[in-house]
Deep mutational scan, measured.
Amino acid sequence: MGFKLLSKLLVYLTASIMAIASPLAFSVDSSGEYPTVSEIPVGEVRLYQIADGVWSHIATQSFDGAVYPSNGLIVRDGDELLLIDTAWGAKNTAALLAEIEKQIGLPVTRAVSTHFHDDRVGGVDVLRAAGVATYASPSTRRLAEVEGNEIPTHSLEGLSSSGDAVRFGPVELFYPGAAHSTDNLIVYVPSASVLYGGCAIYELSRTSAGNVADADLAEWPTSIERIQQHYPEAQFVIPGHGLPGGLDLLKHTTNVVKAHTNRSVVE
């Protein structure tokens, strides 16, 4: 069995187990497998329904001669939608809004960016022009300005110390501490036991640490421990890039980060 097929099978099995364990909360999309990078042309966006009122959005972007996937989250909030992270750029984010209108038909009224990198804030200006209120932590807003990236308009308070959590509509926002970046936030959907790890969490097929220019490698494993301790009931975990899975993604990420750190020390 090929690795790609095995990865998709694991996603399907995880979703099936969740649907059985929580039949009222989960209505997993039966329309197909989780979209992969090879299936999404740059400039297009796919939506994948995880649970009743919960979707991931998947886009792709060219970077350094390669094409990478990027995940975000959409959560229903009454007759409105909360968006977590842009679709990595203005063109993708405009396509995301169009796809949401086509498939869901509810307005996106608020959006949260989970850290300051372009795959999370690139497209904020498109959201703002569409009347979406954009939010991020003060740290993310400051770092985005320093980096020359787009800056969300509103500040999220109460997320300055490791372990801080605040309720934001249908989700809980959690600051686990520094990891992929010093400002990275985690998003949890309690009604569906869905954990969105953003770039602080890796997919299972990833074996290298990737972009760690703004990471705190020493603190990252401790931050992941905080996530595990705060959300032990999480059933569906979405990484910032690639295929979702279960809580095993947290341990896998820790292993990859520690291996990278150990290699760096040896070198």
Rank of each mutant, 00 (worst) to 15 (best):
L217W: 04
G43K: 06
V121S: 00
V37H: 15
P69K: 08
R76G: 07
V28T: 11
H57A: 04
V237H: 02
V166A: 08
Q103Y: 13
F116K: 00
H241Y: 06
S193M: 12
P244R: 02
G43T: 05
P176I: 04
G246K: 12
L10P: 14
Q228S: 15
S181W: 02
A213E: 11
D64T: 11
A133P: 14
T14M: 08
T182M: 14
T109M: 12
T109L: 10
T60W: 14
T207E: 15
K91Q: 15
A133R: 13
R46F: 07
G32W: 10
N211E: 03
I186Q: 00
L47Q: 04
K251Q: 15
E33D: 10
V171L: 07
R167I: 14
T207Q: 14
A165R: 14
I201F: 07
A59S: 12
S264T: 11
I40D: 05
A129M: 12
S137F: 02
F26R: 14
S38Y: 12
P176C: 00
A234D: 00
V37T: 13
T254E: 12
Y175S: 01
S205F: 10
T222M: 12
A200W: 03
E267G: 07
D214G: 07
I227E: 01
T36P: 13
A66I: 15
G105T: 13
D125I: 04
T140C: 05
G177A: 03
S16A: 15
T182H: 11
Y68W: 03
L24T: 14
R206N: 15
F63K: 04
I84S: 01
Q229M: 14
W88L: 00
I238M: 08
A130R: 14
A234I: 08
L82A: 02
L243R: 15
S161C: 07
V67H: 15
H260A: 14
F174D: 01
D64G: 15
T207Y: 10
H57M: 01
L217C: 01
E225M: 11
D183L: 02
A90G: 11
F174C: 01
E33T: 09
P176Y: 00
V257P: 02
Q61G: 04
D29R: 10
R226C: 02
I58S: 09
Y12W: 11
G158R: 08
A130K: 12
S16I: 13
I227C: 02
V266F: 13
S193G: 12
T182L: 14
G240A: 06
R206M: 15
D77F: 06
D183P: 00
G131R: 08
D79S: 10
G131F: 00
H241E: 01
A178S: 11
V187F: 00
V237R: 03
N184A: 01
I50L: 08
E267H: 12
V189Y: 02
D52L: 10
N92C: 01
S27F: 10
L159W: 02
D214Y: 05
L250H: 06
E147T: 15
G105A: 12
H57K: 03
D183M: 00
F236R: 11
D77T: 02
L24N: 15
S139R: 11
P138S: 08
W55R: 03
S16M: 06
A215L: 03
Y196T: 01
R206Q: 15
G158K: 08
L195C: 01
E233G: 11
E172A: 02
L81G: 02
F3W: 07
L82N: 05
V42D: 15
I17V: 12
V265I: 12
S181M: 01
T153V: 13
G169I: 06
L10W: 07
I238L: 07
R206T: 15
L9H: 12
I224H: 00
G246C: 04
M18K: 12
G65A: 09
Q229D: 12
I84L: 13
H57N: 03
A192E: 11
D214Q: 07
T207S: 12
T93E: 00
V166K: 10
F168E: 02
A178I: 07
S208P: 07
P170S: 10
S16P: 12
Y202Q: 15
D29T: 09
A165D: 08
Q235P: 06
V266A: 14
L204F: 09
H260R: 11
A130V: 11
V171R: 03
P239F: 03
L97A: 00
A133W: 08
G65L: 07
L81W: 01
V37R: 09
R206F: 15
Y196E: 03
L10D: 15
L82M: 09
V146M: 14
F168V: 05
L5N: 15
S7M: 09
I74T: 06
K4G: 06
G122N: 14
L5R: 14
P41I: 09
G148W: 05
E33L: 08
K251M: 12
A111V: 06
E39T: 12
D183K: 01
V45A: 07
V189W: 01
I151W: 05
L204M: 14
N211F: 04
H57D: 04
I58Y: 08
A213H: 13
G240H: 07
A87F: 00
E172V: 04
L159Y: 03
V265M: 11
L13N: 08
S160H: 11
D52N: 12
Q61T: 07
T254H: 12
I100Y: 04
F3C: 06
L73P: 06
A259Q: 11
A66R: 12
L250V: 04
L106A: 11
T253N: 04
T36D: 14
Q103V: 13
S16N: 06
L47I: 11
I20S: 08
S160V: 12
F236W: 12
S113A: 10
S70D: 03
S162V: 10
I17S: 13
Y135N: 04
E150W: 01
A90L: 06
G78C: 05
G210L: 04
E44P: 07
P239R: 02
L82V: 09
D64A: 15
A15C: 14
P176V: 01
L6R: 08
L96A: 00
D248M: 09
Y12F: 08
D164T: 11
G122Q: 09
S70H: 03
S27L: 12
I58T: 15
L82Y: 06
A25E: 13
L5S: 15
G210E: 05
K258M: 11
E157A: 12
A165L: 14
V28W: 08
V194Q: 01
G197D: 04
Q49V: 12
E39L: 13
I50T: 06
L81Q: 00
L204V: 11
V75M: 03
V187D: 04
G169H: 07
P107S: 12
D214K: 03
S56D: 09
T114Q: 00
V54R: 03
H57I: 02
P244Q: 04
F3Y: 10
V75Y: 02
A21C: 15
S70W: 01
A213K: 14
N255Y: 10
S160C: 06
E145V: 09
T93H: 05
V189Q: 01
P190Y: 06
N255K: 11
T140D: 04
I50G: 03
G245F: 02
T86D: 00
K102I: 13
D52H: 09
G32L: 10
N71R: 02
A94N: 13
A213F: 09
G240R: 05
A209G: 06
I238A: 02
V187N: 03
D52Y: 09
G65K: 09
A192W: 05
V108C: 00
I100A: 06
E101K: 14
P232I: 08
P239W: 01
S193Y: 14
N71I: 04
H230C: 04
S162D: 11
V194W: 00
S7P: 09
D85K: 00
N92K: 03
T86F: 00
F174L: 10
L6K: 15
V126D: 04
V187H: 00
S264G: 12
G53L: 07
Y135I: 04
E267C: 05
V171N: 04
A87L: 03
T36C: 08
A98H: 15
D79A: 09
A234F: 04
G158W: 05
L143W: 08
S38I: 08
T261M: 13
L185M: 08
L24H: 11
V171K: 01
E267N: 09
D29Y: 08
S113H: 12
V124A: 08
G53E: 10
N149K: 15
N211Y: 05
P232E: 07
A51P: 04
V54N: 04
T36K: 12
F116P: 01
D119L: 01
L127P: 04
Y48D: 08
I100W: 01
A59P: 04
E101H: 14
Y34K: 11
G198V: 05
A95R: 11
E101D: 13
A259S: 13
L73S: 03
M18I: 15
S22I: 10
A59M: 03
A133H: 12
D77E: 09
